[in-house]
Amino acid sequence: MSETRFTSDHEWARKENGTAVVGITDYAQEQLGELVFVELPAVGDAVTKGGEAAVVESVKAAGEVKSPLSGTVTEVNTALADDPGAVNSDAAGAGWIYKMQLSAPQEFDSLLDADAYNALVAAAG
C-alpha cells in the first residue's frame, strides 16, 4: 500500500513500507520549464527533511530539490542524466529522482496530502 504526499516546496514522496521514492511535482516542473540537467545525490548519502538533496536545472534557472523526508539514499534515477526531460513529461512517474530508506518514517504524516497540496497550488495561481 503506497501513498503519495507533498511538500510546500513542490516535492513529492511516495512511501512504501520503510522506503520512499522522491520527485518534484508537475507544478514544479512546469514552473521551471524544460529541464536540461539533474544533479543527483549519491547512493549512501544521508539526507534530512528540508535539506538540499538534488538540483534540477532548466535553461533559465537552477532549483534545489529539498528532501521531503530524512534517511539514506538507496537508489538514484540515472536515466535522468541522458534524459532530464523525463521530469517534465512524467514528473510523478519516470521522472522520479531518488529512492531512500527512511530514518524517521513518522515524518511522512506531516507532509501535505493531495487535497492540501492541490489547494496550495490553486492558491499560487
Binding site: 520549464g33 524544460e34 536540461v36 532548466s58 535553461v59 533559465k60
Partner: peptide, 9 residues
C-alpha cells in the same frame, strides 16, 4: 514573455 507554449529549447 520568457517563453511561449513551445518552451525555450
Amino acid at each position: 514573455p520568457v517563453h511561449f507554449a513551445d518552451g525555450i529549447l
